[in-house]
Amino acid sequence: MDDYLVSVLSNIGVISFVALSAYLLLLTGEISFGQQAFFAIGAYAAGMATAMWGWPLALGIAWGAAVGAACAVSLGIPTLRLRGLQFSIATLAFAEMVRILFELFRYQVDIDGEPVGPNGTDGFRSIRYIFDHNIETFDFMMLIYTMLAVTLAGFMLLERSRLGVIFRMIGEDATLASLQGIAVARYKVLAAGIAGALAAVGGGLYAHLTTYVEPRTFDVMLGVHSLAYGLIGGLGTALGPLLGVVIDVGLLESVRLFAGYRMIIFGGLVALLLIFRPRGLLDERLVNRIGRLFRNAISGSTRTGRGSR
């Protein structure tokens, strides 16, 4: 496989994690501008684990995810009672604080005669795990996609589970959900924690993919992009945000023709798309319709065409 293709696909895979993270919160009715913070926390934590403390990759990424989840929960609790724009801006403020703290964060150790570790605005270089362990970029891409597949499977299960129903219910109307006896606060914090862990896994993979990270990688742009992916691809299924990432990174990547005009065309297309499909390409209605077709096809021989209501 072409090196270039591998790098583009790897990028798509890694960014998908943040997009899914923002999507999970959208399900519970929260618009977060701050998922990039957990992406950053995951990247730094996992990078420090493998590059400075010599941990194996799996442990490093799991550690990153744990730290990300812990931070997300500790953000989730004070922001519980915030809604709408206030929640969004609080997450934005948090994420920017995290970014600036990483700009101030210096912690280096000597490895093979060279200082390794986060170094303020210069960032964190030499996260060389895949080079030290001779992992081919193709294999690393496969690792990213395996983990993405596992995550997607998790989302599919979630959509069918009670938990998924509760999440969507809270997203529709939190007051109504609490009247049904659902502990809204607990589920919101749970969702925040899972979303934080997801973004952090993406960050850990990203740090090892590029071998370097720096604070400005994690600014608002990344957060708003990851939110936009769900809206472009569709809010009806976890494949929506993925589709969004593929459209943004993949399609634009292949259309070199537009070079200097690419955001002009793409921005305009997204705006037009949202007029006609305000909840994205794969919105709930389309997903339901496809699901119904699918079910009808299976049970079609026993029932009449009218099938479900």
Partner: peptide, 18 residues
């Protein structure tokens, strides 16, 4: 469709910047 408006205005931001 408030979220759609917001994301749409973000897309136009990218357009204006370029």
């Amino acid at each position: 469709a408030g979220i759609a408006s917001m994301v749409s205005s973000f897309a136009i931001w990218m357009q204006l910047e370029q």
